[in-house]
Amino acid sequence: MSLTREDVQKLCVLARLEITPDEMADVLAKLSDIVGLVSQLEAEDTTDVVPMAHPLDQTQKLRSDQITETDEHQLYQKNAPLVEKDLYLVPKVIE
């Protein structure tokens, strides 16, 4: 199983991950190897097997509906690369 350059480019768009032209050949080759590895799964018969999403058979615990958090936006925004008027700034969002 090997991937094409177009496959990788499509994945890069979905994952919003730039791969430079220099990196491309390496990424393509190694990803193809990895896909080859995981393709071994196909041969296993899993008819009637329930997929396992969690390692333990537990159910969701719920939180009571209470406000437990206070405003700390100034502390949190210290990590933000670009903030103005308490808003996080990003390149223009077009709708």
């Binding site: 969701q60 719920l62 509906d65």
Partner: peptide, 25 residues
């Protein structure tokens, strides 16, 4: 006011986890 009701979980900070609100259920 903007972002005053957005805590670590709402901001998707590294390492935080969601815990489901019973009332919503």
């Amino acid at each position: 006011p903007a972002n005053t009701q957005a805590n670590l979980v709402d901001l998707g900070y590294p390492g935080v986890l969601p815990v489901l609100n019973q009332q919503a259920v």
